[in-house]
């Protein structure tokens, strides 16, 4: 297949842990958009940094970005984007995954660690408070500023009433 390299049996087991739910999805998407600096800060703040075993990667590859013909029709291949992913396992046995656009391997590794930590009862609140919450707030602020900047360029049409003479 087109996947990078075969995964060791132990890793495959880690990858098959049942992990679903909207919370997990939200965490993954915030971790993908966290900056390396935000991740490093949260790592430094951890009361106890866990022992971490790399399972896969961090490794950089490509994802083919697809669009839709006409915007809503059948998919077509628009072009590729660089993506870096990592899978780690904490010494407690919890696996963490991360995928993010770009080529920053350290960012992917840290994101995978926090993905695992966010699934553990002891560290879930910490990850939410020190990382996911602030990242979500930053993104919301950035999006709001961008939307307001664009809104300032909205055209307010008005009609000129011409005189009869």
């Amino acid at each position: 297949m087109e996947s990078a390299r075969p995964i060791e049996p132990q890793a495959a087991q880690a990858l098959q842990q049942p992990q679903t739910g909207e919370g997990r999805r939200r965490a993954a998407s915030l971790l993908a958009r966290a900056t390396r600096l935000e991740l490093e800060k949260a790592w430094a703040l951890l009361p106890k940094q866990p022992a971490v075993k790399p399972v896969r990667g961090p490794e950089t590859g490509l994802v083919m970005v697809r669009g839709r013909i006409g915007g809503g029709g059948t998919p077509f291949n628009l072009g590729e984007a660089t993506v870096t992913r990592a899978t780690i396992m904490l010494d407690s046995g919890t696996a963490g995954h991360a995928h993010a656009l770009g080529t920053d391997r350290e960012k992917a590794r840290l994101a995978a660690i926090f993905d695992a930590l966010s699934q553990e009862a002891d560290s879930h609140a910490f990850v939410e408070r020190e990382l996911l919450g602030p990242v979500a707030a930053r993104i919301a602020t950035e999006d709001k500023v961008k939307a307001e900047e664009a809104a300032a360029t909205r055209v307010d049409f008005f009609t000129m009433v011409r005189g009869d003479n």
């Binding site: 087109e2 996947s3 990078a4 390299r5 490794e59 950089t60 590859g61 490509l62 994802v63 083919m64 970005v65 697809r66 669009g67 839709r68 915007g71 809503g72 998919p75 291949n77 628009l78 590729e80 984007a81 660089t82 993506v83 992913r85 995928h99 999006d143 961008k146 939307a147 664009a150 360029t153």
Partner: peptide, 23 residues
């Protein structure tokens, strides 16, 4: 450069109806 990288997969088709708008 891109020829040196493996492909992880294809994205879910992007939804341009739900993009943030700059223009």
């Amino acid at each position: 450069y891109r020829t040196t990288l493996p492909r992880f997969g294809s994205s879910v088709p992007i939804d341009t109806a739900n993009m943030t708008i700059e223009r």
